[in-house]
Design a protein around this nucleic acid. Structure first.
Lengths: 190, 190
DNA sequence: TCGCTACGGTCCGGTGCGTATTGGAATTAG
DNA sequence: CTAATTCCAATACGCACCGGACCGTAGCGA
């Protein structure tokens, strides 16, 4: 049986309320009851769609990520990395940053959720950097043998910053990081 | 007036209970009431000593860190980094790792606490790596101009791993990371 | 019409927070 | 010795949130 279809307006209201709450109160200000109250929706309407607070945030962030996934291709490794890092860090200074922080907080409390996040979001972000590296590699720019560690060096500092000091993620820092990773990736093999 | 002195056994019981709880239940399993119950101490005895759950965890971890702070000096940069990373990662696979995860979860929910953690723990850990780099620099091994970014590349991936997959922090990974950072630090200036 | 599912609203038991009170034990000042 | 002070365990409180259950109503398909 199909039954009554879900009201798309309810979906939108939940997403919107989640964004607003996490934006101006951070992870601590987000609760299932709070989301329901703010969106003018019953708690069950939320629980019918999401099994936990983490799922709500993950969905909101996934929707955000679908719209803009940076994948620069300028023909120069450092330029590609710089563009990607600047765009990514700029996002971390705004609402997506708060969402990522909430995501991390949730992941730290639930290993299964952490795995879900990895498979949903992290993987595609890493793939984007992997493509940049592969293109540079085919141009002969990259000599470093291991993509994975290079990707860790790109994203590691970002999460480090998100946890302890998000203001660290400036354009200047993006430039330093792009330079460092490029230098390593193109360093002559010994 | 001095009044009745605090019972040191109570301090120990609280610390011990905190370690046990975070070790086998993670951050989610840690609560002020749980700590009090497990340690056989009244809630007020806990609140008299710590203003929040984060403070309890921070103190437990600081006590842990005071005992063993790795500061290898083998005369070789990669060797020093490898030793430090292996020891550090090994700790992250155990109780201190769970404590660090709890710390991160708390920091993500409280910016002030994040700053406190930075000043208490992070700073000294970074300084340890800074000394390794400075020593190598004075030996002429290091050419890379900026210590800070190198230190970020050492610890960034660790926190990245702590958030999403602590099993990543193996000896093999420590070796890869030590190689990468050493390669970058000693890369010829362009 | 009947069966199903969604909706808002309301209530429930349970848990944790942070604070407060009570009655007693330990310590020091006078 | 006594009074003041601080600690202690135990217990209770109001508040917020969780996850779910139950209403009565609303929309949709068979």
């Amino acid at each position: 049986m199909t039954g009554r279809p879900r009201d798309p307006a309810v979906d939108d209201a939940i997403r919107q309320a989640t964004l607003e709450l996490v934006a101006d109160q951070g992870y601590r200000g987000v609760s299932m009851e709070g989301i329901a109250a703010r969106s003018g929706v019953s708690k069950q309407a939320v629980y019918r769609r999401y099994s936990s607070k983490g799922e709500v945030i993950l969905d909101a962030l996934a929707a955000y990520a679908r719209t803009r996934l940076p994948n620069p291709d300028t023909g120069d490794l450092r330029e590609d990395l710089l563009t990607l890092l600047e765009e990514t860090f700029a996002a971390q200074r705004g609402v997506p940053g708060a969402l990522n922080q909430a995501l991390a907080a949730e992941a730290l409390q639930d290993a299964d959720f952490a795995r879900r996040v990895t498979e949903t979001l992290i993987r595609s972000r890493r793939a984007a950097v992997g493509e940049i590296l592969d293109r540079a590699r085919s141009r002969g720019e990259v000599t470093y043998p291991d993509n994975d560690i290079l990707i860790d060096l790109v994203f590691g500092p970002m999460w480090y910053g998100l946890v302890f000091d998000a203001t660290k993620l400036t354009d200047a820092y993006a430039a330093e990081l792009a330079t460092a990773v490029t230098t390593l990736a193109t360093s002559p093999p010994n």
